[in-house]
Design a protein around this nucleic acid. Structure first.
Lengths: 332, 332
DNA sequence: CTGAAAGCGCTTACAG
DNA sequence: CTGAAAGCGCTTACAG
């Protein structure tokens, strides 16, 4: 590996001049610039980003902490953020919290040690851990999808309330009275918010709000299976199940199938978060769709603003109710 | 942000001693160690990984280049690699090649500039670009899922040939004679290998091998749509379509649905790569399943071996044919 | 067991 | 426009 000293020597200039010629910072004679560039090319010189970072205190790297890449919603989010970050010249260091606060905290520590220029997270927990340390340390941070009470961080999220409202209205309109809920973890703001929105909407429509109709999962597949089973076994089971994310909806679907419950006829099923294949299952699943790509773009945009000293306002993106046939409406 | 000098001062020792006490490298009196540790804790000292890396020439970071995170197969792979890497103390910098050689090359450059300790890639292209530069530069590298002709790099991959063989045998056993293929991109070894295996198996079973039955996609959803359309419109259409990955199978499924072709009755559909929800669509989709998590674990294991100077052999993992009902077999 | 010194590869005021 | 020098925050031989 050749260093900038090698390049300088070959071009017959000082290290300082070589640096200026290569980076374009500061002035350098046109002839010098070409000489240095040629030397660099001939040597296959590749600037050492680690050394540069130590000097400039910028790493051109941002940290991304995500709840679970295997969840297609987050995979799409990672993709969107990665694309947007690349356009800003940022590389991504990613950590998978797996919906665990401990793992999240571990990653935050690692990312801070690596001196990331900023942090984007779908945060876990109550903000007591490493995340608040990062903020205290002044690391530019943006949250996506979720928020944490007490942490004053710009948040990019979908308008979950509107989505839930539209969904409940839709279900009520179909004549459903008992709406079962597979709620997300109450440690996550999305888990809390979606449940609160469901309850509010149910009351508004004068629908059943029995506590036994609400089951708590963790946004992963297995708890969808369990909660669906519990709801089906109720003495007075729900007309329809609304799962607070796609993976729990998938689990619920599997469990209903396994028990011989005909989805859309014996019992409805609806989901928060849409997926490509929701329209392919039988019956196609009614869902609230988020604009995941836009979430990613906005997150990166806000992070850039924060880095430039701004205090951007939260961004709320619209959602889209995709009505299909899993809740019992007229099939043909 | 406090530095090791701050810690040293507070503990009343030299910078060198503070470093030894903190890292455990070299000797230090027990009493000194506790004094230094206390000082570090009190100051909230967090070692600067960038500075450490510059000195040690190790970054504890590995680069991962993946074809497309939105493809669930790769999302699962990222997850597996990330878990295994974390156990080795490695952080992950990820890049999404989006099935493009140019993007891959850009990421390789960035990752090398960041001095990653190693590289794991699902490689694109013919190995002419940045990937071979990385190898020439001596960066420990492992390929997963795919290989590149001419690049002597350990590869972890599934036994695709066996999977294809089992699939064709299954289809032939059901009485299908004309098997349509949505092949992957021929620039990818998986694209080539799966197609070659299909052709060999067809010949072995004395089945039709018309060129018009083979369409070429790029492993993404849209080309599955297009290829399925082309196959359906053939004067003599296939009995069944075998898509070389899950996203193209999904696209094909959508297109067959859209055209009113009843999957499993009018025409069969099979896929390479299984997905959770393949068992939920109607009819459930027959697929070759890979052990994605094991692929990730093995990749990290091999990378560690390479770093320690070893020349590990390629690893081939078994696959699993999951027979469901999308190819026309007895439904009930 | 401990400290002074060198150095990893860069960038950037500061003189000239 | 250019070069000598300092310094980013660490680790690590080398003496003592």
């Amino acid at each position: 590996m050749s260093t900038i000293d090698d390049v300088a020597r070959r071009a017959g200039v000082s290290r300082a001049t070589a640096s200026r010629a290569l980076t374009g910072a500061g002035s350098a004679a046109p002839a010098t610039v070409t000489r240095v560039r040629d030397a660099a090319r001939e040597l296959g010189y590749r600037p050492n980003a680690v050394a540069r970072s130590l000097r400039t205190t910028r790493t051109s790297t941002i940290g991304l902490i995500v709840s679970d890449v295997r969840n297609p919603f987050f995979a799409e989010l990672v993709h969107g953020i990665e694309q947007a970050a690349e356009e800003c010249g940022w590389s991504l260091m990613v950590g998978n919290a797996d919906e665990s606060t401990e793992r999240q905290d571990g990653y935050v520590q690692t990312l801070l040690a690596h001196q990331v220029d900023g942090l984007i997270a779908t945060p876990q927990g109550d903000g007591s851990g490493a995340l608040s340390e990062a903020l205290a340390a002044g690391v530019p941070t943006v949250f996506v999808d979720r928020r944490v009470a007490g942490l004053d961080v710009p948040v990019v999220a979908s308008d979950g309330d509107a989505g839930v409202r539209a969904m409940v209205e839709h279900l009520a309109g179909l004549g459903h009275r008992r709406i079962g809920v597979i709620a997300g973890p109450q440690e996550a703001s999305t888990g809390r918010d979606r449940l609160r929105a469901v309850r509010a909407a149910l009351r508004r429509h004068g629908l059943a709000t029995d506590d036994e109709l609400v089951r708590f999962g963790d946004f992963q597949l297995d708890t969808g299976v369990r909660c669906a089973g519990e709801l089906v076994e109720l003495a007075d089971p729900p007309d329809v199940i609304f799962a607070a994310d796609n993976l729990m909806a998938l689990g619920a679907f599997q469990e209903l199938r396994r028990r011989g419950v005909r989805v859309g006829e014996d019992m409805g099923l609806a989901a928060f978060d849409d997926l490509d294949w929701f329209s392919l299952v039988d019956p196609p699943i009614t869902a609230v769709a988020q604009d995941t790509r836009a979430l990613g773009n906005e997150a990166v945009r806000l992070l850039r603003e924060v880095r430039e000293g701004g205090q951007p306002a939260d961004v709320t993106l619209p959602v889209d109710l995709r009505v299909r046939r899993s809740c019992g409406e007229g099939r043909r």
